[in-house]
């Protein structure tokens, strides 16, 4: 018991180490760029910066809560306390050495953030939360090493592009052309919010991370670099789980000491 330390993820490769690092909430994500609070709000497009938060129910204090030991114990988030709407940020991650793969977004999100609802689909990962809570999470998602301006897209709709080849500037395809590569500054700028509504002024999310740096930081297994099959420990972990699930479904009493 005394020796138990959360282990997060098996594996001996650099990708496994990155996965472990990002999933471990005690590891502070490295901040690589600054995007102002207001710009984060603009990028998501749920409200105008400075506008009051709309609510879906009255503040908890005003409405009162039913007698329930769990409600008494569990502290609501600031957004829940205020009765905020539940809103989302949705990310599309390229298959070319993106920092976070879709599943990693869910695992990392659930180990780092409280009261979030994350779903993983084939080409997009929405994270939903009470609006003011979401804005804090979104800022970290965009400003730190788990985001690359060129290969991660903030896309509420028409998300396709994650599995397409990159363009001449190393940018992931976006049918709505929400982001552009500014050749003069070398930065990626958003000209539309995540839904595709044009922004009054472009928002820079900084320079794309260099290819070799991305390969160092990625949590994606990929044949050109760390192929999944080469991480024997992870492969055997997956095989073990598959075996145990199957054996347990046949007879849980026979699964002992394996």
């Amino acid at each position: 018991m005394a020796t138990y330390k959360p282990q997060f993820y098996p594996g001996k490769s650099k990708v496994a180490a990155n996965r472990k690092k990002y999933m471990d909430p005690s590891y502070k994500l490295e901040k690589l760029r600054t995007v102002s609070d207001d710009d984060i709000v603009r990028l998501m497009g749920h409200r105008v910066p400075g506008e009051a938060y709309k609510s879906v129910h009255p503040p908890l204090e005003e409405m009162g809560e039913p007698a329930c030991p769990i409600r008494e114990l569990v502290e609501p988030t600031p957004g829940a306390k205020a009765g905020d709407r539940i809103r989302y940020i949705q990310m599309t991650d390229s298959v070319y050495f993106t920092p976070l793969t879709p599943y990693m977004r869910a695992w990392t999100g659930h180990t780092r953030y409280r009261g979030v609802d994350i779903g993983v689909l084939s080409g997009r990962v929405p994270l939903e939360a009470r609006e003011r809570d979401l804005e804090k999470v979104a800022k970290e998602l965009v400003e730190t090493e788990i985001f690359d301006p060129a290969r991660c897209g903030i896309r509420g709709a028409t998300v396709h592009g994650h599995s397409l080849r990159l363009d001449e500037n190393g940018m992931m395809f976006d049918a709505l052309r929400r982001f552009q590569f500014d050749k003069k500054t070398g930065e990626v700028v958003y000209v539309k919010d995540q839904i595709g509504v044009p922004l009054d002024k472009p928002i820079s999310v900084g320079k794309p991370i260099k290819e070799d740096e991305l390969r160092k930081r990625t949590s994606e297994y990929r044949v050109e670099d760390v192929a999944f099959r080469t991480d024997k420990e992870v492969v055997s972990f997956i095989e073990r789980l598959h075996m145990l699930r199957t054996e347990a479904g046949f007879d849980p009493n026979r699964v002992k000491g394996i």
Binding site: V74, P76, T77, I86, W107, H110, R114, D117, A129, R130
Partner: peptide, 21 residues
């Protein structure tokens, strides 16, 4: 999770990722 957000919609996400983790 649902208690902190005082919201029921998080349940499926909890089902998947509690087990994954």
């Amino acid at each position: 999770t649902c208690g902190a957000a005082r919201s029921m919609q998080h349940t499926p996400s909890v089902f998947i990722y509690f087990n994954d983790l």
